[in-house]
Computed example of a mutant assay.
Amino acid sequence: MLSIRAVICTLTCLLFSGLALAQATPRAPGLTFLYSLNCTLGASLPVGAGPNGNRVVIPITGGSFKGPRLSGKVLPLGADWGLIDSKNTFSADTRYQLQTDDNAHIFISTSGPAQSDGFIHLRIKFETGSSKYYWLNNVIAVGILTSGNGYVAIDAWQLTSPTKA
């Protein structure tokens, strides 16, 4: 015979597990377009094998970016210190500098793996002391990179909170 305590525990567990199953899928976050960037690249320098794969350094030599809240040029400082892993997947690891049309400086770092469809999915992190663009320091951003002969193009978006019900 079950004790009253055991029955209450069993009913409570069933009630809470039923509630968990009945909950709706959470609302998805949104994306707000930040900019499109075109960047020119220098000749790559194969560094060779290391503990994390084969490293290749690709210099960033210039370019431009344009979006609804910021635009300017890509300065010729920085590079992609990418890795090619044991399964031949390239992962970007960049650090470079933007200068806005109103002369603010924004440091960017990105990382992310190549996908089977040829795109590279990027995590983007911004750093700036500019009061006008300080909001970028707190942005969670993603980008989609496509590459060409001597250049890359990146479309970048800011992650936004889901809308409330």
Rank of each mutant, 00 (worst) to 15 (best):
A43H: 09
I4R: 15
G30M: 09
G150I: 10
S116Q: 00
G63T: 05
Q23S: 14
E127K: 00
L122P: 02
L14N: 13
D85F: 14
S64F: 10
P46G: 11
R55S: 03
K132I: 04
K164D: 09
L83Q: 02
L14E: 12
V7L: 15
S44D: 15
L34Y: 03
L83I: 15
L77S: 13
Y151D: 02
A104G: 06
T25K: 07
S147G: 14
Y35V: 04
I4W: 08
Y96M: 00
T160E: 09
R69P: 00
L75Y: 00
G118V: 03
P46C: 06
Y151V: 00
K73S: 15
V47H: 13
F16E: 14
T89D: 01
L15S: 13
D155M: 07
G148E: 13
L75V: 03
Y133I: 03
K164V: 14
G143T: 04
G150C: 04
N149K: 13
N138A: 10
T146L: 06
N88W: 11
T146G: 15
N88F: 11
R5Q: 13
F90C: 00
S86L: 09
P29W: 06
I144K: 12
H105R: 05
L2Q: 14
S116W: 03
G78R: 01
T25Q: 11
G62M: 08
A156Q: 03
A28M: 13
A156S: 15
V47W: 15
F119E: 03
P59C: 06
P68K: 11
L83N: 09
L41N: 04
D93C: 05
G118P: 04
G129V: 04
P113S: 04
Y151C: 06
A43F: 09
V152W: 01
A104K: 00
V47P: 04
L19P: 07
I84F: 14
G48N: 05
G50W: 11
T10H: 14
V47Q: 08
S131G: 02
M1G: 15
A165E: 12
G129Y: 04
L145F: 01
P29H: 13
L11W: 08
G18D: 07
S71Y: 07
K125V: 04
S3P: 09
A79Y: 05
G62Y: 03
G118R: 02
L83K: 06
